[in-house]
């Protein structure tokens, strides 16, 4: 009994530091890879707690391996958009300009009830109030209400971390050439851009990458 208690305590400390090491991302909504890691860790850790025949290292080593994989995969995902897409997928628009995209809902295996429940979770009780609804890679639904659209047109990220996002440019009815022309006008190179947000009206906000720890102001049109 005492051995079980000591093992539980040791493994608890290991898990605590492991989750802390993976970072704050784990605390919020989970990406698919993060969910997998969380489930695996919780299953692996019970084995040496319940079964004293299993050496405790057989619980600790897989956990260390999993958290290392997760950090490495996160780092690669940050650098490579394609890799990130493979691991986490892409956000999908299910309501566009108030119109429900049923094909996308079917692809996501999202029923109408699921969609309405998600809208209610966003304090929306009428489809009339919705301009855009997006299913994020975590499975949560983000909503842009029609009342909000009178204040600020919804923006989408067209450049992230020095790379053009063609799908998002098409979404707002713009092209890569348009984005290039904007950057050229401002004497900017895409590789130096941290984030460029734009809307269908052609309004944009540009944030350059920080150099030497200096923060950059937004560049607006």
């Amino acid at each position: 009994m005492s051995i079980m208690l000591i093992r539980t305590f040791l493994l608890y400390i290991i898990i605590l530091f492991s989750v802390r090491f993976m970072g704050k991302r784990q605390m919020g909504e989970l990406q698919p890879s993060e969910l997998v890691i969380t489930i695996l860790i919780s299953n692996i850790v019970t084995q040496p707690i319940e079964n004293e025949n299993i050496p405790i290292l057989m619980g600790i080593l897989p956990i260390l391996a999993l958290i290392s994989f997760e950090v490495i995969i996160s780092a690669i995902s940050m650098k490579s958009g394609k890799f990130r897409q493979i691991i986490t997928g892409r956000p999908k628009v299910i309501i566009c300009n108030g119109h429900i995209d049923q094909k996308t809902l079917k692809e996501l295996r999202f029923s109408a009830e699921d969609m309405l429940a998600s809208l209610r979770g966003n304090d929306i009780f009428s489809l009339e109030d919705v301009d855009y609804a997006i299913v994020e890679t975590t499975g949560s639904v983000s909503v842009y209400k029609k009342s909000d659209s009178q204040q600020n047109e919804m923006q989408t990220a067209v450049v992230i971390d020095g790379k053009y996002r063609t799908t998002e440019l098409e979404f707002i009815g713009k092209s890569k050439k348009w984005a290039e022309s904007i950057l050229n006008k401002k004497n900017l190179q895409v590789k130096n851009i941290y984030l460029m947000m734009a809307n269908t009206k052609g309004e944009y906000d540009i944030i350059k990458k920080e150099e030497n720890g200096e923060s950059n102001d937004k560049i607006k049109n």
Binding site: F21, G23, L61, A65, I67, S68, V71, I72, A75
Partner: peptide, 18 residues
């Protein structure tokens, strides 16, 4: 730093298992 530590941990685990 975390990335370097993770790579270090993985290398250590491979060496330990060998």
């Amino acid at each position: 730093t975390r990335l370097k530590i993770s790579i270090g941990i993985l290398i250590f685990l491979v060496l330990l298992s060998t």
